[in-house]
Design a binder for these strands. Sequence first.
DNA 1: GCCAACGTTGGC
DNA 2: GCCAACGTTGGC
Length: 152
Amino acid sequence: MKSEPSVYSIDDLQRDGTAEWEGVRNFQARNHMRAMRVGDLAFFYHSNATPPGIAGLMRICREAYPDDTQFDRRSKYFDRRSRSSKPAWDRVDVAFAARFDVLLPLHLLRDDPALQGMLVLKRGMRLSVQPVSEPHFRHILELAGTRPAQVQ
DNA sequence: GCCAACGTTGGC
DNA sequence: GCCAACGTTGGC
């Protein structure tokens, strides 16, 4: 799950404990969120950062439900076409799980043969919520040196 | 700041 | 339904 750290970073999530993952306005990304279940783990990816990369780990603590910001005229996520009787956009709630000792930069992931085919590495891949395969997930946790015991 | 990639919009 | 124009994302 991507976020620009200048907007909301892994440090912000660590401070807050939990967060509402609002503002997703892409159908595919939304559908990936709808497939999430409580307890699922997700990577926190820093996009538009120097360097971009995976900053930590979080846990889904509430499954998809309507994202209020779509009805809020003052929100930059306001969607005039969405009706409260049939909300178009959902969010999930996430809980801080771990902050990697060092951010895993995108270029390092690119150079790793074990991560061949990972979606985030594909050119032009802009989806802000993406599925990660089990082997890739485990490999990245190893790269990060994160042991299950360290995951909150 | 540039620009490729991609999604959305709207005229036809 | 097609597709050009436009806006956004996000790496570089």
